[in-house]
Amino acid sequence: MAVRELSALEARVLAVLVEKASTVPDSYPMSLNSLTQGVNQKTARDPVMNASESDVASALDELKAMSLVNSVSGSRVARFEHNMKRVYGIPGQAEALLTVLMLRGPQTSAELRINCERIHRFADVSSVEGFLEELAGREPALAVKLPKAPGAREARWAHLLSGEPVVPASAMASSPATASSSERDEEIAALRAEVEQLKAAVARIQQDLGIAG
């Protein structure tokens, strides 16, 4: 699979084409105008973008060079369709998962099952996890399970079509926080020991001086 890492806009354009092919098939293949609207859509997008038609057109040119997008002839208005499954060699279930990850950012398996509903309906969360594990086990990997954030019940998944995801420090594994907590516990224990030693010293001084404690 000779496909380079996609830019954030290229990934969004590709994902919108896959999404709209399932959700609004009557408008697919898509025109540049409708595709730009889908890229800048305010709902079901993270992050929200504000790309111009020329930005989207440039992204389309790059995607066409990688065979991820095709131009469709025979219409007065240029229209575009995706070729994601064939280029990446993945089944429709995996395509749906990667699409929703590109549109909405990192999500848990349960969130992905819900958000994929209009593209592909998964029977249960375990089937979602099965396809995610398969994507993560490919060479090169197309998805990754992120470290569980402190206090989070489930780990989230991210796509790797645009390279390694940037994980905020607050979402990193809890081991550093655990280490800091352990250090604080040791400091508190040391302070308590010092207080007990001072109390004993004061008691001895009071005893020597005949002062009642």
Rank of each mutant, 00 (worst) to 15 (best):
S75N: 12
H82Y: 08
Q93V: 11
G74T: 07
A136M: 07
L132N: 07
R79P: 09
L112W: 00
E111K: 03
Q107W: 01
E139Y: 10
V144I: 15
V77P: 02
A143S: 03
R118M: 13
E129D: 15
N83T: 09
R153P: 01
E117I: 11
L103R: 08
V72E: 07
E81L: 07
P106V: 03
T108V: 02
A65Y: 09
S126I: 12
R138V: 01
E81R: 13
L68R: 01
A110F: 06
A110S: 14
L101P: 00
L101T: 01
R79I: 15
R118E: 15
V72G: 05
R153M: 05
E133F: 12
K145V: 04
L135Q: 02
L112F: 05
V125Y: 10
S109L: 03
S126M: 13
V69Q: 00
V77K: 09
S126N: 12
E129K: 13
A78L: 14
S127P: 06
L146W: 01
P91I: 06
N115P: 04
G105Y: 07
A141H: 08
L103M: 13
K148T: 01
E134Q: 10
A78P: 12
P150R: 03
R79K: 15
L112V: 02
L132F: 05
T99Q: 00
L68G: 01
S109W: 00
A94Q: 04
S126E: 11
I90V: 09
R121N: 14
E154Q: 12
T108H: 00
R153N: 05
V100E: 04
R86M: 13
A123T: 14
G89Y: 05
Q107L: 14
E129S: 15
S126L: 13
N70R: 13
S109D: 06
E133K: 15
G151H: 02
L146Y: 01
P147M: 13
I119L: 11
P150K: 06
K85Y: 08
A78D: 15
E111S: 06
G89Q: 09
L142Q: 03
M84C: 10
A152G: 04
R138N: 08
R76F: 09
A65T: 14
L132S: 06
L103S: 02
A110T: 15
E81F: 04
L132I: 06
S126Q: 12
K145N: 09
L146H: 03
K145W: 04
I114Y: 07
M102Y: 07
S67Y: 12
S71C: 08
A152K: 02
A94M: 04
P91N: 12
I119T: 06
L112D: 02
P147A: 12
A143R: 01
P140K: 09
L97W: 01
R113I: 04
Q93Y: 04
E95Q: 10
S109N: 02
E133S: 14
E129V: 14
S109E: 01
A149E: 05
R104C: 13
L146A: 05
G130Q: 10
Q107R: 10
R113K: 14
R153H: 10
V144R: 08
N115S: 14
N115I: 11
S67I: 15
L63N: 03
G89N: 05
E95V: 07
S71M: 11
A110D: 12
P106A: 05
P150W: 01
E134C: 05
F131Q: 11
A141C: 07
E134F: 08
R113W: 02
I90T: 01
S71T: 12
G92R: 10
C116A: 11
F80K: 00
A136Q: 09
